[in-house]
Amino acid sequence: MEDDIGLVERYIAGETDAIEELVMRYQKQIYAFIYRMTKDMEESKDLTQKTFLNAVKGIRDFRKTASFKTWLYQIAVNTSLNHIKRDKREEVEFEDSVASSQSGALTSILENEKREQVRKSLDTLPERQKLAVILRVYESLSCAETARAMGCSEGTVKAHYHSGVKKLKEVLKEKDYEFSS
């Protein structure tokens, strides 16, 4: 199988079908990451498309010293953070009312609701902590890759990640969450 950099070079050289192969390779990962950040399928579909278009636009800035995957995650992080910030400004009041009306249903121990609880607790984390946890836990990025994608040092990633996980533990304990192991 041709490597990512080979496909990038072919695309830059004018072989436009190379970009289709790159999109096919990463669309599911990028969509899943964005969904975990936004929790909205339609929005995630749009943002996945936007991420790839931004990547194509800036493909000449891609330095072969980093992996294409990490570079793509970096664009996905920026694309989704920009969107979330814009969204937050518009929908603060709406989100507050939805959150308070749902909080009563979260004490059930049924598996689905447990997951919902975990999912919700992830949302209580500050943005950078949430990002570090998602990239490391779900996207299986190494510390170095996460640092590159987030545009910070490995030390900062570790700090965000550990305080994120610690906070999740506390939040879940507070809610008497039963760990299955």
């Binding site: 969904y35 447990k114 533990k169 299955s180 192991s181």
Partner: peptide
């Protein structure tokens, strides 16, 4: 560390809907 493992394995169970 057991608690940490528990939190992370719970997180990993959260699925993403397929478009």
């Amino acid at each position: 560390c057991r608690d940490e493992l528990a939190v992370i394995s719970e997180l990993r169970k959260v699925e993403v809907p397929d478009p």
